[in-house]
């Protein structure tokens, strides 16, 4: 049994994949706390699709897809945040309009000019074999940056997330803080796409944070818990991916979903109410 479990660790590509999946899960778990508390659970889904448009555009132009898709995703995130903060339309509607338009533009560009870049199938569903050394180092760099931002801007991020108007009055530069969070979120999605895939990255942002919220009512504890849950889901999910021969994004998300069901069963449906935001919608997809 143990032998079977350890067997894939003999392969370098698998060790690399496990490290990346664990780190990707932790990163998404950490950033996901802010995503669900801002009532923007759908943003992961939307941004990953927007970034697909960036993939296509960078492929057509012939620039690095990490740079092109990163800038594209950040611009989309800023646009979503700006529109939703204006209160003219809700965040869900802003995400729906901006990201689907970006996705459609990406499809149109690929149709007209053809795909000259990396495999988009891997980008859509995640792949153990598709993880390059560049992916690993990009993810490490983004993780270090994210932890640095969360640690150094912890109080401003918390205040701007909880009560942006009072935060503004109290000296927090809310617009700048929001932009910083959107940058980190875009980079987190971009750097985890190779292992999780466009279609499932949203779940890795939301599920660990929702499970953590059901287990604690302290913000600092929620950050730690969500990060740890995301890491465990990445680790377990990647192992399952190898043994079941199923795309890694799928098994990582299913591991998280199983954990969600277990915690929901143990703590009761009432705890799910904790994840409701001002709009009254629970933060599960």
């Amino acid at each position: 049994m143990l032998e079977t479990f350890l067997e894939p660790f003999a392969y370098d590509f698998f060790v690399k994949a496990v490290v990346v999946a664990t780190l990707a899960g932790a990163l998404c778990g950490l950033v996901g706390v802010y995503v669900i508390l801002r009532g923007m659970s759908y943003i992961g889904h939307g941004l990953s699709h927007a970034i697909f448009g960036g993939f296509a555009a960078s492929s057509v132009i012939g620039v690095s897809y990490v740079l092109g898709a990163g800038i594209w995703g950040f611009a989309s995130a800023l646009a979503i945040n700006r529109v939703s903060r204006s209160h003219r339309i809700g965040a869900d509607a802003a995400i729906g309009v901006i990201t689907t338009a970006s996705f459609a533009l990406g499809v149109a560009l690929l149709t007209v000019f053809g795909n000259r870049g990396p495999s988009f199938d891997a980008a859509l569903f995640g792949s153990i074999l598709g993880i390059s050394s560049t992916d690993v180092w990009t993810l490490v760099a983004v993780s270090v940056l994210t932890v640095g931002v969360v640690a150094s801007r912890y109080r401003a991020l918390l205040f701007a997330t909880f009560d942006p108007e009072v935060a503004d009055v109290s000296g927090v530069r809310v617009a700048r803080t929001d932009a910083l969070l959107m940058l980190v979120l875009s980079l987190a999605i971009l750097s985890t796409l190779s292992v999780i895939g466009v279609t499932l990255v949203a779940a890795t942002l939301v599920i660990p944070a929702v499970v953590a919220r059901m287990l604690t009512h302290r913000f600092a504890t929620m950050l730690w818990l969500s990060t740890a849950i995301g890491a465990v889901c990445g680790l377990v999910g990647m192992n399952l991916s190898y043994h079941l021969d199923v795309p890694s994004g799928t098994t990582i998300v299913l591991t998280g979903a199983s954990l969600f069901v277990v915690v929901l069963t143990l703590t009761g449906v009432g705890r799910l109410g904790r994840t409701q935001t001002r709009s009254g919608t629970p933060a599960v997809l």
Partner: peptide
């Protein structure tokens, strides 16, 4: 106007003033 489900304790909330 406040999201009362937000995961903060009274102490954490008051401390926001020292951002």
């Amino acid at each position: 106007t406040v999201s009362w489900n937000f995961p903060v304790t009274v102490g954490e909330c008051v401390l926001m003033a020292r951002s």
